[in-house]
């Protein structure tokens, strides 16, 4: 393309008047002199082919969505009972508590309808807050019932630093409630890295559960073999 024609096309492009076909021609006709435009189109092409976040595939896993819908009632019932048991257990086992206002802030943050708020709340927790029994109950609750995978993973991260024997038992119990393979695997990794505090028979029970994903069972089998 002659440079005069090219310049006219560029002018038309910046006026928002080019058709898609002309824009395609423009991209092909650019010379090294059009350094900026070349970089711009490289950027748009890169964006177009950019892979979406890893968690994304899991989040829109329709299979698990359907599973949730059809088992909704029983899942909810099981989750409620589990949360209740976890709460009672924790209040009994540990006496550390968060000051009331800290707990309320945490509770409100975790109940926010915005994912970013819930993530922010979890990320800003201090180690002391993570240790408190009342906070751990909330974190376990989030791990079991939050509908966003990133939030559930963040709750797990907040819990992992304080993995006591009692907490690990609750984590093992919560595994079958997870409808996301990714969270299940993260949970299993945590459990495996604290294998000395876990009862092997509990792990074997998981292998027989139909709510544990294939990938998770493979990982569990490897851990038990070791």
């Amino acid at each position: 393309m002659k440079s005069e024609k090219l310049n006219k096309l560029i002018e038309k492009y910046y006026a928002g008047e080019t058709s898609l076909r002309e824009e395609k021609k423009l991209k092909e006709a650019l010379t090294p002199e059009n350094e900026y435009e070349k970089a711009l189109f490289d950027y748009t092409l890169e964006e177009r082919h950019q892979t979406i976040p890893t968690v994304f595939d899991q989040k829109i896993n329709v299979n698990s969505t359907k599973k949730i819908r059809s088992r909704k009632f029983w899942s909810l019932a099981a989750a409620s009972i589990l949360i209740l048991l976890i709460s009672i257990n924790f209040l009994r086992l540990q006496n550390t508590r968060l000051p009331n206002n800290g707990l309320i802030t945490l509770k409100m943050g975790l109940q926010s309808s915005l994912v970013s708020e819930r993530l922010k709340t979890l990320d800003s927790m201090s180690e002391e807050e993570q240790k408190a029994a009342s906070a751990q109950t909330l974190l376990l609750n989030t791990l079991v019932s939050d509908r966003n995978i990133n939030v559930r993973l963040a709750a797990l991260r907040a819990l992992e630093k304080q993995a006591s024997k009692e907490l690990l038992k609750e984590l093992v119990n919560s595994l079958i409630e997870q409808n996301s393979p990714m969270v299940q695997l993260a949970l299993i990794d945590l459990i495996i890295s604290n294998a000395d505090k876990v009862d092997t028979s509990d792990l074997k029970d998981l292998l027989n559960s139909e709510n544990v994903f294939m990938e998770s069972k493979t990982r569990l089998n490897e851990a038990i073999a070791l």
Partner: peptide, 18 residues
């Protein structure tokens, strides 16, 4: 923005479509 909100939007739309 941030990205987490965009992911949440897509998840919501998928559920609605389903």
């Amino acid at each position: 923005s941030p990205q987490e909100e965009a992911e949440d939007v897509v998840q919501d739309v998928y559920l609605k479509l389903w």
